[in-house]
Design a protein around this nucleic acid. Structure first.
Length: 574
RNA sequence: CGGAGUGUAGCGCAGUUUGGUUAGCGCACCUGGUUUGGGACCAGGGGGUCGGGGGUUCGAGUCCCUCCACUCCGACCA
């Protein structure tokens, strides 16, 4: 490609609303252009990167035996009613009507479509397993799209769906997909971690996320400082250790704590370590059947509630904040809520870490009073309905559940997620096959997603400097940029063109910067747009020399013009 | 969805407080010339529904009403 003819432009200044590196550089470099909130046009450069990523994904998926299909982007609303997700997915599902008033949705994901496709075709266990995938457009009407391609409404996703006769076979495919994903992200040159994850709205039994490590990530992930344990904070666990309270209390006593509501205030007032206090977090739980109730969650004073875990603990669809008035209405005393003597109609959950804990301070369910010396040994105090669950958020310094070493918290961008769905879609959609005994059984399914357009942004988040993008070689739009120092100097242009032909013929994607510009803008664009290697054909050509630069290492080589091809090939292939 | 903010040329902004010729600047763009190893210089030039609609006024980018779009924080989110 000759830059003088290329549909690409660069900007000196980023639009003011771009705040993260990938958003700024992808716009400044002429990769994407915003159309509406969370919707972008891809310019040639952006499309090239996208295609490179697609190619890697396709190659590895095909190698793993999956088969590429393309499911319709507009799908009948009926299918979504079949599984009940029409309601569950809420406003994120963009509904549209055709001229006959028939309802459709823009696909945010394709479980329904693919089950509908397969149930009409696969009848026997002999046709299983099967894994179908596509790399296709998705639309989710996010409440708040942001950060450019990191959270768009319209985006490209690779989604795969596997069908199995047995759980064991699903496990095998799940592991195969995990290995395949690792290969894909490794080939892209990304630093990532595979973490245990919550299944969320997709449902199913087990899931793992693939997180690209970057400070701009929206997810908190817990990683062990020693072993390979890694989990999304939404599901991360920790090793429980019971510390013994050095302060002993003879018996349970109520103490007067006027206006001391927060953990800090109470503990300071009573002179105790917040570790031995109980924090109450009240939430309004909303269930799938529309029922709502106030639930109280108890965690240690030093911990905080992890809402996803809490939600899962009680099987709620959503947890919402409650006002003091609402709490008082059901008989709770805001600021002084504790596990003993709660109104009998209030559901509560106690964090696992408090199981059998002793010498605690907690609210007395009475204005201006707390209880000292409480212990959770005696379940009778709490009644039989007491449930202990893991509901506290793992924090920096907690101990690894696998090896006991300290845990760390880091930020990650979710670029892949694999699920064991089981029969959560096949059952309601009545998608069955006949087993060896001629009995109809629902398909056992897995599904596997990769955020393809998000990967573009993730790669930039992880590979940039103050000047611009530094593309990993595998996905760079062009691998080599040949800069002609002065296009009016015929010998420079002629030499550059010969080199360009040679590299292109050797299969190296090359761009020839033959614009009538000075050196400054050309080299700045090389750095901004982020090609791995550049060759500067300039002044030194008359002494038989050209310069070669490596964008990533910043190395500069002055090489003889006769060996420049070999030098470039060496850099491109190393 | 709650809170905050912004909307003037492709991008970045000034002008709005206190209404008053023809709406301005930098970058980008076009023409000519000089330049060509770190975002050059000189001269000339093109480009605007001032987010939309309505209103007040002799007069609205500026004041009022209303709608819309976009961004940020949060909630939400395979």
């Amino acid at each position: 490609m000759r830059w003088s003819k290329f549909f690409a432009y660069t900007l000196k200044e980023a639009p003011k609303d771009a705040v993260v590196a990938s958003h700024k550089y992808l716009i400044r470099g002429g990769y994407i252009k915003q159309v509406a909130a969370g919707i972008y046009n891809f310019l040639p450069l952006g499309k090239m990167v996208l295609d490179n990523i697609r190619a890697i994904i396709k190659e590895e998926m095909d190698k793993a035996g999956a088969q590429e299909v393309m499911l319709s982007f507009v799908t009948p609303y009926e299918l979504w009613e079949e599984t009940g997700r029409a309601k569950k997915y809420g406003d994120e599902l963009l509904r549209i009507e055709d001229r006959k008033k028939q309802k459709f949705v823009l696909s945010p994901t394709n479980e329904e479509s693919v089950v509908d496709l397969v149930r009409g075709v696969v009848k026997s266990y002999k046709q299983l397993p099967i894994n179908l995938y596509q790399i296709n457009l998705k639309f989710r009407d996010e409440a708040r799209p942001r950060f450019g391609l990191l959270r768009g409404r319209e985006f490209i996703m690779k989604d795969a769906y596997s069908f199995h006769a047995t759980r064991d076979d699903l496990d095998r495919e799940f592991n195969l997909m995990e290995e395949t994903y690792k290969k894909i992200f490794e080939r892209m040159g990304l630093k990532f971690r595979v973490v245990e994850a919550d299944s969320g709205a997709i449902g199913g039994s087990g899931s793992k996320e693939f997180m690209v490590l970057a400070d701009t990530g929206e997810d908190d992930i817990v990683v062990c400082s020693e072993c390979d344990y890694a989990a999304n904070v939404e599901v991360a666990t920790r090793k429980h250790v019971q510390k013994e309270n050095p302060i002993k209390t003879e018996e349970i006593e109520e103490v007067y704590t006027p206006n001391k509501k927060s953990i800090e205030e109470v503990c300071e007032f009573l002179g105790i370590d917040p570790y031995f206090s109980v924090k109450a977090v009240a939430k309004k739980a909303v269930y799938e059947n529309g029922k709502e109730e106030i639930v109280v969650f108890f965690v240690r004073g030093v911990d905080s509630l992890e809402e996803t875990k809490a939600k899962n603990a009680i099987g709620a669809l959503d947890l919402m904040d409650v006002s003091e008035e609402e709490l008082e209405k059901v008989g709770l005393v805001p600021g002084f809520i504790g596990p003993f003597g709660l109104p009998s109609n209030i559901k509560y959950v106690i964090d696992d870490d408090l199981r059998m804990a002793q010498e605690l301070v907690c609210g007395a369910n009475k204005k201006d009073y707390h209880i000292k010396g409480a212990n959770l040994l005696d379940a009778n105090l709490l009644g039989n309905l007491t449930i202990y669950r893991d509901i506290a958020a793992v924090k920096e310094g907690d101990l690894c559940p696998k090896c006991g070493k300290p845990l760390k918290i880091t930020k990650g961008i979710e670029v892949g997620h694999i699920f064991k769905l089981g029969t959560v879609y096949s059952e309601p959609m009545n998608a069955t096959f006949l087993d060896e005994n001629g009995k109809a059984k629902p398909f056992i399914m897995g599904c596997y997603g990769i955020g393809v357009s998000r990967l573009i942004a993730s790669a930039v988040e992880q590979n940039h400097d103050e000047k611009g993008i530094i593309w990993p070689k595998e996905i760079a739009p062009f691998k080599v940029d040949i800069i002609v120092g002065d296009v009016k100097k015929e010998e420079q242009l002629a030499f550059a063109e010969v080199l360009y032909e040679k590299l292109t013929n050797a299969g190296v994607k090359t761009i020839l910067d033959d614009r009538n510009e000075r050196f400054g803008p050309k080299i700045a664009d090389f750095e901004l747009v982020g090609f791995p290697v550049c060759v500067i054909v300039g002044k030194k050509l008359k002494d038989g020399k050209v310069e070669v630069r490596d964008r990533k290492t910043g190395e500069k080589f002055e090489v003889d013009k006769d060996v420049v091809f070999e030098k470039v090939m060496e850099l491109v292939n190393r």
